[in-house]
Design a protein around this nucleic acid. Sequence first.
DNA 1: AGGACGATATTGTGGGACAATCAAGTAGGG
DNA 2: CCCTACTTGATTGTCCCACAATATCGTCCT
Lengths: 237, 237
Amino acid sequence: MTETDRSAPGGAGLTRAQGAPTAVERVVAAIRDGVRAGRFVPGQRLVEADLIRDLGVGRNSLREALSRLSSDGLIVVEPHRGASVRRLGRRDVAEFYELREVLEGLGARLAAENIELPGNRERFTSALEAVRDATGAAQMADYIDENTRFHRAIVELAGRARLLELVDQLQIQTFRVQFRNALARDRTGMREYSAAEHEDLAEAILAGDAERAERTMRQHLRHTGGGVMQLPDTDFA
Amino acid sequence: MTETDRSAPGGAGLTRAQGAPTAVERVVAAIRDGVRAGRFVPGQRLVEADLIRDLGVGRNSLREALSRLSSDGLIVVEPHRGASVRRLGRRDVAEFYELREVLEGLGARLAAENIELPGNRERFTSALEAVRDATGAAQMADYIDENTRFHRAIVELAGRARLLELVDQLQIQTFRVQFRNALARDRTGMREYSAAEHEDLAEAILAGDAERAERTMRQHLRHTGGGVMQLPDTDFA
DNA sequence: AGGACGATATTGTGGGACAATCAAGTAGGG
DNA sequence: CCCTACTTGATTGTCCCACAATATCGTCCT
């Protein structure tokens, strides 16, 4: 029936091998992307029966998918009340940026240390140019998206599987909040500020200066998080 | 049939509310404790049918439990091959300690900042005295256990839910390796060294010196991790 | 109007069935 | 005798159904 579409390179489980990206992961991807894109709004209930009908999967597969999403912190499952898209309060967002600071700070440090490894410099400059181009993109959303990719690329260079997994989870969360208000207040001034910090960061990494890379990354995320925290209450839970 | 025993304060899901510690969590706790205690050895296959029979649950519940454990990184699930207890290589263990360093470093910093909050000082001194007593315990395993509790207590003081969750996961992993060889080589010298670092750490936290608390914690974990990494290959995968 | 009760909706759990896939053992060819 | 291909068995992936447990909400009685 349902064609096994083997796309969805999202960033599934990491302790999981990849042989056939079948079934349950389709649901995980669908809901995750739906939340990211805002089709599922925070607090919205995710009724099993509806999802089964819409996604065309069995209840087992659906429930397992919900379980995984719950582990990732994207949804909340309350006993006998079912799943709902997680609401992010100020406290949550602040904690996420705090964690990103230490984790991506470590990632930047390691990336700088590993910059001489074969292929790494090429991969990094490629990601850097992509985010440079996106600075002038028409849609703020596109910039945020490319920005996320840039940060992720750095952690990839670090070469730590579990670290990458953790950062992925946190990025999705902060991505959500950033995205929510991206369309409304599109302040290109913020982009340029962010872009300038990216250049500093890139310089440090390309120079192999681990210490400076970490410091710059942490500062950058502190600034970004601070900006997000200044948003009005309506953008949170 | 099976009485719902509401013990198991292990540290289940954190985005999950607690109303009735029912069913699936029983399986999670059983397997998690089994792995921790060494009843399930790394690499051992976890066949669904066997677990269903031994634990007396349905396949649905069991599979959901395995899914959660996989998310926590305690087991590995390969498509069409089933679940098995995760094998920890040197690389894995090194990464775990690296992550603990930044995460618990942050935890110690926040704990120092929050030491004046009502009840915190009491809770901390209580945990400190417990680990002091355990330094002279008969069994090395008991010391390791109390040591883990001490570290966890610090992160609890930090007051960050997600951070505590991440640290819990990592502690279980490093706990496994430490525990494996605890019985064989019981070097009390290591305990005393570790205990001395704990005193430094406690002093910093009680003094509210966030900077020093973080530095001391990181140094302590670096030492501990270094010690574990010197173990022979037989203690890893 | 307020509270107790009951109907409805949804989830938690167990069990069964079948296809897909993997692992191993066996038979056939060189 | 060794290597390859096929058959067989074991195990998992997925779906379906049924029933119990629980929450949610509307109704009725006082």
